[in-house]
Structures are given as C-alpha cells and as structure tokens.
Design a protein around this nucleic acid. Structure first.
Length: 900
RNA sequence: GCCGAUGUGGCGAAAUGGCAGACGCAACGGACUUAAAAUCCGUUGGGCUUAACGGCCCGUGCCGGUUCGAGUCCGGCCAUCGGCACCA
C-alpha cells in the first residue's frame, strides 16, 4: 500500500524506448565515409565535458549540463542537422591509483567498473548519445594517439618569426633540444611526499594536496615541460573570435597575464656584469631609488658584499624553508636584506642600493625589479619599512588634462585622484572608535611623517624626470623606451604570467612517455612502437624518493643495452586535450582522427570547430587552455583544420543541496539521479533539471520542485490518455481530428514561437513554462484536436523524449497524417498571423501610473488613441482640474497623459 | 586588496525602457470521496479603505540621477558568491 501509484507509467515506457533507440541506432551519427551519410544536411557538434568516472557515481549536478546538450542535440536533429553528440571517460587519474595502492586491485579493474556504473546511470536518463563513439582515455587504442600527439609536440619548435609551430627539422640553430615544444628541465616543483608525486600548481590548495590534504614542498626535479608560453600571445588574441562567456574570457586573459613594458639594463657599481629588470612603467625610471632581486636570483652570491654575507645566507635559508602556505600567508609583511651592493640608475647615474626580498619572484620577468616606491604599492611598503627613499615622478593629473576637462571635474567627484586628500587628512587625526575597523593600509601610509608623499599608482603626468617632464604616462613610456633603445640599454618588451606546463607525473595510472634515454639524452620512440602500454605491477606505491612507480618494472624500463625508458607518466589533462577530436572518428587505428571526419565535424565558417560546449567553470583556465594549446599545435602542423576547438562555450551553474549548501558527502545532502528516476521517471528528472532556473545560475535542488514538474508531465499525458475500467491507459475520447478554435490556434503558435526561441537561447526554464501554459489551456477543452497535440509532442520531445515517443506512437494507431517515429518529424514553424489580434489592449496612464485599460483597433492612429484616452472616465478623473502638459502615445501599447 | 557574477513574494523564478511577480512550489478555501491519497476548480506581495462591488497608497538590496515612464539605463554605496592574489 506504500507503493505510490505512478502518475503515468514511466517505469514501463522509459526502458521500452531506451531499448528501441539502441536497437534502431536512432542516435548514431554517420561519418562522411559511411554509405548512409547524408551530405545535404548541415552538421552540428554539441559536446559535454566528459566526466571522471569516480566510484561514487553521478549526482544530480552532473546531468544538468548533459540534459541541456541533449535537448539541443535532439532539437537540432528535428531541425534537420547531422548531430554529433558523444560521451566518453576521462579515466586516468589519482583516485583509481590511490584505491589500487590501498587494495592492491589494479586501477584498470576499478576504472572498468566505475565506467559501467556511470554509463548505466547516464543511459537511464535517456540521453541521445551516440554510444558507438564512446571513448576512454585509458584504452590503448585511445592513448596510442595521446602519445602520438605528444610526439608531434616533441618533434616541433615554435618559430617566433612565423608565430607557428614547425617541425624541428626546420630549426637552424645548434641545439634543437633547447627549442622543442616538449622539453626536459630541472625546475622547482610541488613535491608531495604523502602522495609521492609532483603536482601541478592547480592541484595544490593552501600548501596541501587537493587529493588527500598532504603537505606539499618546493623541490627542484627533472621534469617534462610543454612550451605553452610560446603560444601566450595567440592564446590571448585568438579568444576574440569565440562565443564564450565574458567572465571566462577575462579569466583566461588574466591567467595568461599579458603585460606590456620594457626591459632595462642596470650597471652594477664596480663590476662588469649588469642586471636586467622588467617594468610596465618605464616612465617612472627616475623614481627608481633601489633595486630588488628575488632571493633565488643567480647573481645574489657574487653581488653580496662580505659584511652582508651572513645576513643574506640567513635570509635565503629562511625563505627556502618556508612552504608556499607560509610564504603567501606572510605576504602582507614585507621582508628583505640589503646585499651591500649598488646599481647605477641609467637615466640619472645615481647609485641605488640592491636588496633581495621574497616579494620579487624568480619566475616572472627577470627575477629582478627596479623599485619605484613613489608609484608602486609593494615598493612603497618595502621602502617604508626599510627607510628607503621615496620619490614622486608622476603627478596624478597633467595640467593640460586638468584644464582640458575643466569644469567637468566637478561632476565626477574624485575622478583620477585616488589618494583623496580630504579623507586622508581626516583619518590621520581621528582615532578609530571601538569596534570600527581601522583602515590600516591607508593610515600606516600616512602616519610616519606627514611629509611622506602618498603612493600613486595611476596614470598621470611625468615630473622630476628631465627627459620626459610634462608628458602623460602613455607618451612618457614611449619616449623612455625610445631613449633606452637609443642608448642600447633597454627595449620595449611584453611579458606573460603564464608559465610553461609541467607535464610529467610520478604516477602509475597515466600515459607513459614514448621516450627513451641513452647516454643522458632523450629520444623518441617510433610511431610503430605505439601504443606504449604501462607495465603490469603488483605494487603501485610510489617509492617516496621521487622515482616514479614505473621504475620498479625493471624489464620494462630496460629498452636496450644502451637505453632505458622514461618512467614518468603524463598528467590527467593530456587525454582531455584532444578527446573531442577522437569523437569524430573513434575507431580509426591509422590516424588520431580521419581527415574527412575531422574536416566535417570540426568544420564550418567559424574559428572554432565545436558548435556548443557545455561544462562547469572549474575548467575555465586549465582544461580549456591546455586543449586550445594542443589544438593550435596540431593546426600549425597541418593535422587539423581549425585553430580553435570550442566555438561556443556555456557554463552550467552548480546545483546545491536542498539545504542551499554545496552538495557533499560529509553534509549528507547529495542527491542521486537514480532515486529521483525511481520515484518520478527520467523525463521528470530531465525537465526538472531544466525548469529549476537559468542554466548558468547556481540553484538549490528541491524534491517538491521535481514533483511539480512530474505533475505537469502527468497532465500532458492525461490530455491524451485515460485509464479504463481495467486500469489500462488508452487513448482518450476527447482527442479528435477536429479543427482548432481561434484561441487554441493562437496558443499553439505562441508556444511554437516561444519554445523555439527559448531553446535557441538555452533558456529552457521559460520554454517549459510556456508548455505548461499550453497544457493548462487544453486541459479544460472538451475536444482536443490531434493536430495541436502533435505539435506539443514535437516541441516537448527534446525535453521529455520517452513520454512524447509513447504518446506519438499511440496517436498514430488511430489518426493518420503523421507517419513514423516522433524523432523523424520536422520541427514546427509558427505563423505570425495567428498571433495578431484585430484589437489590442491599451494601457492608460496618468503621470506614469496605470489608471485604466481599453481595447483599441490594432491600426488605431496616435491621434485616435489620444482622443480615446482623454475621453476615458478614469483618466478624466485623475486629470481633474490639472492641465494636460503632454501626452505620450505608443501605438498598440499605451497612452500616458502628463499633467503640469 | 583586485577582477567578475548575483541581489525581485514564504521559496525556485518571469518580465525588447511601457500592466512587476508569467510558470512552478508551499499555504489556504472549495468540488469529488464514508474518509484519505490522487485529481479538478479557486485565492494567495504588503498596507489602508469599503456593508459589498471596488478604490487608494507602498513595493524589485541602499542612496542619487536620466526619462512622460526605470527591476531594466547612468553614478555612488552595501551584502552574498566565485576567481586571482606580491606577476613589477
């Protein structure tokens, strides 16, 4: 008796249709080489970010994006496109390996099991994936080509002249290994003793490993790197042609971090060597009153004066023992030590002291800066602390600019002068009262001596700088760079925050590098030796020394008497850098993707090949940057036809638990799709996922909400089906081959129009509410014309494919006129003529407030409307004795009477 | 600190500068039922007023501006969330 009666028999019909679709290969996409390929149809490639198949299975957050893409895929098929809509598995990765270490079970077994679970869960939702194109990154037939692409990168260099990757054979220099796009370097890495592997920066959170929360230390190790920095400029510039959310574009631009400035050479007093610095503000060179090197800078030892040696050694030791966590945590407090040496400011020949400080990073620019405390917050803070000279060389606003803007300044209070003299003055004399947060930064800046000039980091006008006095910042920069170039001591320069990609991991469960070492040098395997499969191991545990697990497989490592194999493996990102290409032609064993298939599916007029890519923001920079990088290398080498992979990108928002908190096991608020489908069916699940709110928005789950959507689907079902005495669902007598009433015709066409536009705009929630309006309107009808119902079914089909397929089939048994499966129907077109009424309602306002409304002829003139409005009783009442100053008439909409 | 997104009923949310709250949830009332569930019909932003029909006022985070008219555009704040965080 507790078994809740199903509002409609989804538990019977959903498995039925899923099986039928599979038998009929209903969603199989043909490739250009296939015999039944229809070349007259346009293509549409809609892609999900494929999942890592974890042991926990799906939660309701995963299918949100998948449902959106599935609706688009089904919609585009109905609109006559060849649709590529694939799914696969990003199956290499740490959890399977950690599990293997714990249990001794090979990661492949865990992975296979998890994939089976994920796949079953996805299939229950009724997604129209072409499962014949399923790929897994762990399949040798797949990673053969991941390794092959690595070799293409390895065998290439970036020609800065042509701004393209080229085969290494075109390189004319002496040492090809110094320019390869894949290279080996001894670099400080994030070494995690707890996991026994190095980690990428993004896998380290607050100095601890993202997986397992083990401490991470910095340690130099020999690693494989990919020269992504060579593409920094193109990775920024070529974002311009993409249809991506502006937030993500910004995130990528900031991550790549382009800075335009100059490199400047400083002579060192009493020495041959000189120091080079990078600055974005060459116009402040006169204000450079000291210089700072990163503690790790290679010239520190030779520059240190004897009396400072002990202090410098102590400081450097202190810095290197700090974890990343401590280093960022202590970031607020500046520290540093003088080297006791001096540089010469090239613009005025002044002696300026050289310091080391950990606020200067070795990894950016030249690892050395010219410090301009008058115009840089950090330098200012440092100078304050150590009593270094602060010199003002930029005035907040030039005289010319000030007079030019003249009185306009008054209306923009505070424009352009950030120090805000009045509020500063007040804060110095006023003590913060209890409980009021003292604005520390501002006050400390002003307190030690009123005569200290404030730091001004904005643009303005050069002063105290003979060479460029009076010039606005932009011109001052230009002139200074020209002067530096003339003197041969500097040049204009562009720098990027982006670092080269640390591409090796000390793990078992990843792609082995197709590389062997001989006499201390690396060389590649031949293509015929691929795939290079990892050796079988019983013990996946890392050695703890930094030696990868693969090193334990002595036989495997032994390549020849002279050569041994590389034992590092590739990071998880490798497989996901090109999976979208493999989907075009997943069975190809002769090429990573067939040329015709790649050209077709990744083709089109736009720079990016994939028409729609939906996934979470967590991949805003990493995956999306790495994949773009690989695509560009492959494009340059002539292997693919587009410079960009993803033309249009959409991020779905996170789904929160019912408690409005992020779903997590520990909170116990995780909702599994299986439970929802058991209770309400896959169609209700899909529709609710879309009805919750805008796709991109974060929103909480609600079981009550699912119930509401389920009720809607049941009402749609009962519009057409009814239960007979025996308890069987049969076609309702109210469904007839009858003409539509005018009001019905209107709602049908309004629904076609809105649902179509909303799907195109990915505004699925409002598309569903329009279909609810349709169903509500027809529920009360005694006769339900079959033509209207069939239109609804096609519109609803992408959202609720099972239910609509079933009803469509049932209708076909009684009514002719629409033969075949619902998936073979054309998408309906709306006709505007059914939406236009001969009369429209006009809003009547007096002084902007609605006072009445009236019906008026569609073609009524402004004058007629105005006259009718002025004659209206309510309007007259509100005008009263006031005089009418003005009337605003918007035909077909409103009349507004303004009184004086 | 910097950058970005968001802020509308009890809740999820709608609204090309033109009737704020479509659609759904919850709640309340009614029909059906011996009863309940399910289903169907109705009410539902707040305040004031009316015997009633109805009417009036207020209301989209806060303050100001543009406009005949602002949830929507502009300026300034506040709050929440997300990203970056010494990048010279």
């Amino acid at each position: 008796m507790n078994e809740r009666r199903k509002p409609y028999p989804f538990d019977r019909l959903e498995p039925k249709w899923q099986q039928l679709w599979e038998e009929r290969r209903a969603f199989h996409a043909s490739n250009p080489d296939d015999e039944n390929f229809d070349s007259t149809k346009p293509k549409y490639y809609v892609l999900d970010m494929y999942p890592y198949p974890s042991g926990a299975g799906l939660h309701v957050g995963h299918p949100e994006g998948y449902t959106a893409t599935d609706i688009i895929a089904r919609y585009k098929r109905l609109r006559g496109f060849n649709v590529l809509h694939p799914m696969g598995w990003d199956a290499f990765g740490l959890p399977a390996e950690q599990y293997a270490i714990k249990t001794g079970q090979h990661p492949e077994i865990t992975t296979t099991r998890n994939i089976a679970k994920f796949k079953a869960q996805l299939q229950r939702i009724g997604f129209s994936y072409d499962w014949e194109r399923e790929v897994s990154t762990t399949d040798p037939r797949y990673f053969k080509w991941t390794q092959w692409i690595f070799l293409q990168i390895y065998h290439s260099w970036f020609n800065s002249g042509t701004q393209r990757a080229e085969p290494i054979s075109t390189y004319r220099g002496e040492d090809p290994d110094s320019v390869r796009l894949a290279y080996v370097a001894e670099v400080p890495v994030n070494w995690c003793p707890g996991l026994g592997t190095v980690l990428a920066n993004e896998e380290v959170i607050d100095g601890k490993s993202e997986v397992g929360r083990f401490p991470v230390v910095r340690r130099p190790m020999r690693q494989w790197m990919l020269r992504i920095t060579a593409y920094a400029e193109r990775l920024i510039d070529e974002l311009d042609g993409l249809d991506w959310p502006t937030g993500i574009l910004l995130l990528q631009r900031n991550w790549i971090g382009r800075s335009v400035g100059a490199e400047i050479e400083f002579k060192i007093e009493g020495r041959q060597e000189s120091l080079r610095v990078f600055t974005t503000r060459p116009d402040t060179l006169y204000g450079a009153t000291y210089m700072v090197l990163a503690p790790e800078h290679p010239m520190v030892d030779q520059l240190t004066a004897p009396e400072q040696r002990a202090a410098v050694r102590h400081y450097r030791a202190q810095i290197s023992s700090k974890s990343d966590l401590e280093r960022t945590d202590l970031a607020k407090d500046k520290s540093g030590v003088s080297l006791g040496a001096f540089a010469i400011n090239p613009v005025n020949q002044e002696r300026i002291p050289i310091w080391i400080a950990d606020y200067v990073l070795m990894g950016y620019g030249t690892g050395a800066i010219m410090a301009v405390p008058g115009h840089d917050e950090r330098d200012f803070e440092f100078a304050q602390k150590f009593g270094l000279e602060i010199r003002t060389v930029v005035a907040p606003q030039s005289d010319a600019a000030a007079s030019e803007q003249g009185s306009a300044r008054d209306s923009h209070a505070g424009f352009g002068d950030s120090p805000k003299p009045s509020s500063r003055g007040a804060s110095v004399h006023r003590r913060p009262t209890e409980g009021e947060a003292p604005s520390a930064a501002r006050e400390s800046r002003a307190l030690p001596g009123e005569d200290v000039p404030p730091v001004f980091t904005g643009e303005g006008c050069a002063m105290n700088s003979p060479l460029i006095d009076g010039l606005p910042t932009a011109q001052a920069k230009e002139k200074m760079i020209a002067w530096l170039e003339e003197q041969g001591i500097g040049r204009g320069d562009v720098r990027y925050k982006l670092r080269d990609w640390l591409f090796s991991r000390q793990r078992y469960w990843g792609e082995p590098f197709p590389i062997v070492w001989e006499n201390g040098k690396h060389r590649s395997l031949g293509e015929e030796e691929l795939p290079l499969v990892p050796p079988p191991l019983d013990d996946f545990k890392p050695s703890g020394t930094g030696e990868p697990p693969l090193a334990k497989a002595k036989d495997w490592v032994h390549y020849s008497d002279q050569a041994t194999r590389e034992t590092n493996t590739m990071p998880q990102w490798a497989g996901s850098c090109w999976y979208y290409l493999r989907f075009c032609d997943p069975g190809n064993d002769n090429r990573f993707v067939g040329e015709a298939a790649e050209k077709y599916w990744m083709g089109g007029a736009q720079p990016g090949g994939i028409d729609l890519y939906i996934g979470g923001t967590e991949h805003a920079v990493l995956h999306l940057l790495y994949a773009r990088f690989w695509q560009k290398v492959l494009f340059d080498l002539g292997h693919v036809s587009k410079p960009e992979p993803f033309q249009k990108l959409v991020n779905q928002g996170i789904i929160l638990g019912e408690d409005n908190q992020k779903m997590s096991k520990s909170r116990g608020n995780v909702v599994s799709p299986d439970l929802v489908i058991d209770e309400y069916g896959a169609d209700a699940f899909r529709c609710y996922e879309m009805f919750m709110g805008p796709l991109e928005q974060m929103k909480p789950w609600s079981m009550k909400g699912v119930e509401g959507v389920s009720r809607f689907l049941a009402r749609a079902w009962r519009l057409i089906m009814e239960e007979n005495q025996a308890g069987d669902w049969i076609l309702s007598e109210t469904v007839q081959d009858a003409p539509l009433e005018k009001a019905q015709e209107k709602i049908v066409h309004a629904t076609i129009k809105k649902v179509t536009a909303d799907i195109e705009a990915l505004s699925f929630n409002t598309a569903i509410s329009q279909m609810m309006v349709f169903v509500n309107a027809f529920t009360s009808a005694e006769v339900r014309p079959v033509r209207a119902l069939r239109t609804l079914l096609v519109l609803l089909n992408p959202f609720a494919p099972h239910l609509t397929s079933e009803i469509w089939e049932t209708l076909g048994q009684k009514f002719s006129g629409a033969p075949g499966d619902i998936t073979a129907q054309p998408w309906p077109e709306h006709d505007e003529k059914f939406l236009i009424e001969s009369e429209v309602e006009i809003i009547l306002q007096v002084n902007g407030k609605v006072r009445d409304r009236m019906m008026a002829d569609l073609n009524a003139t402004k004058e007629e409307l105005e006259a009718a409005a002025l004659a209206n009783g309510r309007v007259r009442e509100f005008i009263g004795s006031q005089t009418v100053r003005k009337t605003v008439v918007i035909p077909q909409k409103l009349v507004n009477i303004v009184t004086g």
